[in-house]
Structures are given as C-alpha cells and as structure tokens.
Amino acid sequence: MSHTRQSRDTGLGWGLATSCVVHASLAAFFLLYRFSPPAPLEAPVYYVDVVNLPVASPRAGSPVTGGSSLPAASPPPPKPAEMALPRKQTPARAAAPKKATSSRESDASQAFEERMAKLQRAIDERRQEAAIDALRRKTAGSGRQPERVGTPGGTGQEAGSDYASYIQSRLTDAFQSTIAHQSKTPEVIVKLTIDAGGHIARKRIERSSGDKIFEESVFKAIARAEKTFVPPPGGGEFEYGFIFRPQGVGKK
C-alpha cells in the first residue's frame, strides 16, 4: 500500500468556535433588544372616578348602597333634564323653517316647555325633601351609636342589608380574578352562611348552571373573598343568597 498524499484541512474546531460566538452574539442581541427599557414617553395620566369610588370597609359604608340605608329616598337626578332637552330642540329645529307660517306650533312648544319646567321644579323639591329626610334619620341613628355612622350596625334590618352589600362587593372583586365559563350565560345562586367570626360556615348552591368551570370559578371567588370578610354586625350568623353571573355578582 502506497502512502497517499492528503490535502491539509484545518479541522472543525475553529468553525465550532466561530459558530458558538455567532450564536452567543445573536442571543445577546436578542436579549438586549427584547429586554431593553423602552424610551420614556409622556407621564401617564390617571383618572380617578371619585363618584363611584369603591369603599373597602363596611364601617365606612358600602359602595353599592352609597353608605346610606335609604337608597330609595334619592331618585336618579339627571334623567328629567336629559329627557327635556331633545324634545325642546327637535321641535324648535323642525319648526324653524316653518316659523313664519305656524305660530300655533310655537305656542304649543312654549306651553310644553313651561310644563316640563314645572315638573323639573317639582322633582327638585321632592329630591330636596327626601335628602333632608334622610339626613334627619341618619342624624337620629348617629345619636344612638355615633361610632357606627354609615355602617350596618345601627338597627337589625339595616345592618343585614348593608353587610350583604359589603359581602357582595367583596365577592365581586374576587370573582373578577377567577371568572371562567364555558356556557354563554351561566347563572349560579349560592346561599352563604357567615358565622360570628366572619368565616363561611356553609355554602349551598340553590340553583346550578350546569357549567362546571363556572361553578368552580364561583367557589374559588368565594374562598378568595372569605379572607377579606369581617364579622357580621350584631355578633350572630349572617345568611344571604348571591347570584353569580359573568357580568358580576348580585344579591338574591
């Protein structure tokens, strides 16, 4: 066998080293590109909804009832005004081209405006009376128990309704982070019994939705919300039914 001359090769070592360097550079570039801090933009602007600001503690009142035990006493304020505006403008616009021809129509609209103004005044008076009445009742309650103003602790019935709202708000908060469902509009009614220590003694499904995932998310929300419960007023047990829907939690 004769000696065979071979071409000289440098070997794969330097190629491997170059390849490793290239890959490491690419990885470093990718990491820098992905995790580099973004350029500072404008300072963020935060908006706080002062009107609907949620209240965490039941001692300060419930966000749902607005801290008052008399929700029915104050009617929704802006509705009459909103209703009055388009009616006021539409005939005016429509009548504008015919202004010269029909004076009867303008008289009718004037009479309508006057009637609406009267109604508005009547509603305002009624609202003021209701507000004063509520204030009187509140003041009377605070005279009895000044440290529990706006709380469910005043009288038996009022206390129960407020505490239910508080529990509802806690459940709503917890349910937002656990909500999951398969069916389109599941609805579960759960009756909760809260003991004197603020812990859930019993929970019973009064109406099932058939959506297992939704029911699991409801139970998770209840378990999560339980940690934030305070003892019910009056030192006794509290029992109430809550309706869980994808839109939120309601009282039964």
Binding site: S7, D9, T10, G11, L12, W14, G15, L16, T18, S19, C20, V22, H23
Partner: peptide, 22 residues
C-alpha cells in the same frame, strides 16, 4: 435544536473555507 444549529453553522464556516481554498 441549538446543538444542531451550532454544529451546522460550524460546518458551514468550515466548508466555506475548505471549498474556497480548494
């Protein structure tokens, strides 16, 4: 996959030089 990529690029560099010189 990273192993395959590293080795294949090593071969690419090596072969580029080898074929160019040849």
């Amino acid at each position: 996959l990273v192993f395959f990529s590293v080795v294949s690029w090593a071969i690419i560099f090596f072969k580029l030089l080898q074929v160019y010189r040849a």
